[in-house]
Design a protein around this nucleic acid. Sequence first.
RNA 1: GGGGGAUUAGCUCAGCGGGAGAGCACCGCGCUGGCAGCGCGGGGGUCAGGGGUUCAAAUCCCCUAUCCUCCA
Length: 939
Amino acid sequence: MGLAVIRVVPRDNALVPVGMGAFLRVASAARPPSNAFALKPSLSDADSKSLEGSPMKSLSGAQIRNLYKQFFAERGHLVFPSASLVPRDDPTLLWINAGMAPLKPYFDGREIPEKPRIVSSQKCIRTNDIENVGHTARHQTFFEMLGNFSFGDYFKQDAIAWAWDFLTRYLEFSPERLSVTVHVEDDEAYELWNKNVGLPSERIFRGTEDNFWEIGEGPCGPCSEIFYDRGEEYGCGSETCQPGCDCDRFLEVWNLVFTQYNKEPDGSYTPLPKRNIDTGMGLERVASILQDVPNNFETDLFRPLMDETSRLCGVPYPESSSDASHHTSKAADFKIIADHIRTVTFAIGDGVLPGNEGRSYIIRRLLRRAVRSGKRLGIEKPFLHGLVPIVDEIMGEDYPDIREKREFIMRVVRLEEERFHETLSEGEALLMRVLEGLTETGQSLSGEDAFRLYDTYGFPIDITEEIAAEQGVTVDREAFERELDAQRERARNARQTAEGMNALRGALENLTTKSQFVGYHDFEAQSVVTALVRDGVEVQELKAGEEGELLLDKTPFYAQSGGQIADRGTLSGDGVTVLVEDVSKAPHGQNLHHVRIESGVLLRGQHVLAKVDKSLRQDTTKNHTATHLLHKALREVLGTHVAQAGSLVEPERLRFDFSHFGPVHDDELREVERRVNEAIWRDDVVEIFETDLDKAKALGAMALFGEKYGNRVRVVKAGDYSIELCGGCHVTSTGQIGMFCITAETGIGSGVRRIEAVTGKGAYLYVKEREALLAEAASQLKTNPAELPARISRLQEEMQKQRSELESATARLHKNRAGELVRDVQDVGGIPVLSASLKDLSAPEMRNLVDQLKVLLPPSIIVLASATSDKVAWVVSVAPELQKRGLHAGELVKRLAPMTGGKGGGRADMAQAGGNDVGGISKAVAEVPRLVKEAAADA
RNA sequence: GGGGGAUUAGCUCAGCGGGAGAGCACCGCGCUGGCAGCGCGGGGGUCAGGGGUUCAAAUCCCCUAUCCUCCA
């Protein structure tokens, strides 16, 4: 235990701020007092700890998480709940991979945050270094990032002071063990660490690329990393070992990014008018230090998972040692399982189901890797689903999504585990078949074959090698890797890279005048034009024919949001008419009207009558309320795993995307449709009110993942049936929707289904159209719609009967005809040859006839030609006995077909051909004996 | 987002340009003391759907749907 020995200086507890008391009461009230860890950094506590020889207090992961949030909440930060792992409105990201990722709109100026200071504990997924997981102390695919953020508010000084304060006095890190890096040119940060904090200069290192944070164009800046020295025994022993070294000695616990520049397209850096702070601290790392364990996996955030795995496989977790081989032993499999099940649990909790593309595929792959680790530990049956409740016990308190969906997540994991076991046994059978051929010749398994097994059948390469080795066969691993690389290259080339953020600037960002939305109740308003923008520049007027954007002091126009599309309508005023074509949200939240001036000139400050197209709006509200009813009905019928994955509400129709495995069956679809219509028939009152988020959640309101809500939320409640948070426009009672019809159900990606539906007038038109179709079909069959199914079955029966009658009739006919044809057999040099020209027989019919003839004739050659109005068909048969004499049906037909303008071919015993020159048949048929004679002579 | 594959009888699958097949299951007849009993006969198919190429498509090409699988 090097830590205890090196410990130098006791903490000065007198420095603990006075405000701590109030904060601590909050913190401890949030957690049961029976908790083993004391939050309070009191003197006595510290002393008792120090007597035990630990320099710090030991805190659970949950305690660190909450302590961090509370610390910054006390310093004016808004506590931001962890966003969904699935990025919202950000196609450049596969997963939320950093604490700042969900806040990108605030960083680039698209949106203005409610408060300029934010603190969060953000769940993140990173799979770039997936191969390292389990083999190092700290690589993980799922982790929690603690971060504090400033948007144009505090900057370096506070960020650095608070970071130091939190680490040394709240987490009680020994200051002697901390060192930092700053950017070579960032003297400001250096001074702050050196002078304000008092960090000696030998523990401030200056770096270059590692200390500058940028992604392509956009906001960027220098950063300062804080390292914790775990002691020499964790080090690589190298003389140059210092913060930033790859080994485990100096652990980077916190990165403070000072966003102060904007990288321009030409590569230059210009200072940002609003500077930001973006910090990130890895929760698991900090926990490993505080809990004095050698790697992240032995903290309380993972350990119960590994203990349960150990119980299941009956293998003890190899207790850690400083021996580097620890990471390559069985311990790695325990760690892989613990890591991957956390990722999978949280991802499924956020609506990502295992599948074959995108995020879904990553989840599938992680799950399979975990299954294989389990196999290496001797677990042969599905077990991962049993770890889900443990993930919930560890983190469900702070991440309610996984607690609520626990049963569902277990079900999904279990199904996927079972499916993989199936894949494995199928692949094994396939591999054995391939190997059979190889063991005899002593060849090795080609890389192509190994890759095919891997790529097409999902059979892991290491298992292929293992089984092949058992059969004494080696695998061409090099060729396999080449194939894999080629595949990677293909995928990479297909990917269009669009990363980074773009700092949005211009007139829109400076539009701060308020605008009131009155459209929930009014379709019209007397308004004043408060701002005009053309081509991103504020202007005083817009003339006829021009397009631009404008703000109104109050507006009845709804801006596109929450799936509901924007209103359209007009503005009219003194000599001016304006078309409102679209409405969006400006950075400061006002409704921004995209307009075209129809006639006249629109001036800033002008009074206008703003008028929404009422008919379109009313159709839209019907579809919107119906969308809520549909959401609820889907959850009732299919299960609560159904989560909205997208929504479009237009006047004409609605579209609703949601997570669900597999197609929705017809009967389920009918049930969903019926339940929505029942809600319409009940004519429930739709209540809309504002309340605070907690109250709304207590009422059971559905909120969307990744959606940001302020403290005041708007609740839309349709009777006792549906209750959702929503800012959209709705009918006042469900009866107004009139009718609800589902028009389509399709899949739009793995685990995501789409339902399209119509209501009101749209539903009426839809039903009428269907009705007309039915009437048309009925009239064609000379019946009425009610009798249609019976009529169709009768027709089918009749057809079946006629078909078999026809068959037996033609069979009789063939028999007769065969009897007649037999008489035409000629003897060609001792070979019986029958060649005949027929009429209106199809190829299958002629084959049938040939079969009849073969029964009646001795081994012979049969050549039949048939003429239809414009085509010729040939069938040639050669008895097996005659094939030995060099006669070949395929060759024969190749000679004959050209004489009727066609071609053909086939096997030695049976061949077919076609043609289009009906006139040539008789001559060709007459040629048969000569051709046979020739062929027989050649042989 | 980009690849590789699958879809054929109730089930498991073969066939991969030229007569739609096997095993199991099912029905009938006969044999048979047990193990998945045996033999003979039979019914059952829009070869996923749609378009194309070809004299000819289950088979080759394109599109759609569903599923499996790999890569980012």
